[in-house]
């Protein structure tokens, strides 16, 4: 494997790994992070009486100052990152791979 080939190989592997990591976070792990770091996004309040049986004595409502265009931050990030975010990441990966493919052909 010559130097150009090695560089191309590393570029392919690392760009793919980074892009996959980002979409894995936006498309899956992000929600786990929201649940685990709930204090960042939610205030703990007493549960309304009719919901106690399902959710226990206290529940979490989103912090109103953490909102974008009226949406709770965690919800906005989920829908926008998994859609626009994923599309942009995909387009960047495509551009890099297009260039790599041209080099491979050359």
């Amino acid at each position: 494997m010559n130097n150009d080939s090695r560089r191309g190989y590393k570029l392919e592997v690392w760009v793919t790994a980074v892009c996959f990591f980002i979409v894995a976070v936006t498309g899956g792990f992000f929600s786990s992070i929201v649940v685990i770091m709930n204090e960042v996004f939610f205030n703990q309040v007493p549960t309304p009486e009719n919901l106690i049986a399902a959710y226990g004595e206290t529940m979490f409502v989103f912090k109103e100052h953490l909102s974008v265009w009226g949406f709770p931050l965690h919800y906005f990030l989920l829908i926008v990152l998994s859609w626009i975010g994923a599309t942009v990441v995909g387009a960047i990966w495509c551009l890099v791979m297009d260039r790599l493919e041209e080099k491979q052909r050359a």
């Binding site: 498309g27 899956g28 792990f29 929600s31 939610f42 989103f62 919800y75």
Partner: peptide, 23 residues
């Protein structure tokens, strides 16, 4: 509906399982 945007109804591993299943 105060709990409408509540994300904590499920264990975090549910979201990881969803990720594994869909990806």
């Amino acid at each position: 509906v105060p709990h409408y945007f509540w994300a904590m109804v499920a264990h975090p591993v549910v979201y990881i399982a969803i990720f594994l299943g869909s990806f």
